[in-house]
Simulated scan of single mutants.
Amino acid sequence: MIEELKDYLSLIQPPDKKAMETARLRWAHVAKPLNSLGVLEDDIVKIAGIRKDAHVSLHKRGLLILCADNGIVEEGVTQTGMEVTAVVTENMTKGNSSVCIMAKRAGVDVYPVDMGVARDLVSGSRYPLLNRKIAYGTKNFRKTKAMTRNEAVQAIKTGIELMGELSENGYDLVATGEMGIGNTTTSSAAASLLLKQDPEKLTGRGAGLNDAGLKQKRNVIREAVAEYGPGCQDEVDILSAVGGFDLAGLTGVFLGGAIYRIPVLLDGFISAVAALAAERIYPGCRDFMIASHVSAEPAGHILLEELGLPPLIQAGMCLGEGTGAVAAIPLLDMAADVYGTMSSFEDIEIEAYKPMEDQS
């Protein structure tokens, strides 16, 4: 167990088996073909276990969008400049971003969080900014480590504390999002170190890099993996070497989901890297996670397979901000409605479906 986090991690208890068994039994009695809602049924059962209650409620849901800048942008690995992070973050506080519009439709409260944007921000009133700034962006990891170990731990603890605040406010479900120019580069580097796989296989175009930009991005990551990999003793070392404050903070959010027993929705590639870091820090943490979709980034499928989390949506999305996670919430709503309100076979006085025998 990582020493700096042991007081938090010691609070984690596994999902409640009795609640999950009750939820599975309820699904078996709902008057429809067995397992016909697929992953949605499994996720409702998972939520019952997380919440220790077979009466699944998703009434209050929030989205944490962790925003931070990344010094690696100096190396020409992005199509746009670092200044875009601040502009988009401020737009989020005004409700004027893709995910904010989607969240309004899905009935999700939005919490933009400044984890390390490179300038001070002016908050709008629609979704007021939570200021948890650790520093004005990370350092350029081609020249030196992105952050100190203490900063990485602080970011992780901040994510855990954010989940504690949402728990106190009665949230039933939390979606994850991020905003930070350059964070597909930090995430690809972290993924390469976590998975011990070639950056070539894991690194994509992010927000629209051309061929030359992609080549530069992969070269930068390959150099960093060779430079820092041998010295990384644990996941905190990986995050401090090549990560971002948003990535480390999201790692804490996933750990916080396990600590405070709130199901956490992965968004895409970046949140999946954070989820894997959390699972490596505390094996079993994935039992408190739900995968919303498969990112179009090359590592999207690889990360979900490593986590053992089947996605709800396959739509080729790669926008970030939490858009995939928010898009999945109405699907969970519909599944929860079927689970909670549909007639049983006994109610309609017909014989229940039986599991099919093996036809092979």
Rank of each mutant, 00 (worst) to 15 (best):
R218A: 01
Q154L: 11
T203Y: 05
D198N: 15
T184V: 09
N150S: 13
T185C: 14
G159A: 03
N219R: 14
D198I: 04
A212N: 13
G164E: 11
T184Y: 07
T186V: 14
L214D: 11
E161Y: 01
S187W: 02
G170Y: 07
T158S: 15
A155Y: 09
A191D: 04
S188I: 02
N219P: 00
L166T: 07
N210K: 10
T158L: 02
S188G: 12
R149A: 02
L166I: 05
N150K: 13
G180A: 09
L173K: 01
K215L: 13
E151N: 10
L173H: 03
M147Y: 11
G164V: 10
D211T: 08
V153T: 12
S188P: 08
G170C: 05
S192V: 05
T186F: 04
G182D: 07
L214M: 12
I221W: 04
L194P: 07
L194R: 05
S192N: 07
N169S: 13
V220G: 00
E151Q: 15
N219A: 11
A190Q: 02
L173V: 03
N169K: 15
V220C: 13
G204K: 07
A191F: 01
I221C: 10
R205T: 14
S192A: 15
N219M: 12
G213F: 07
Q216C: 10
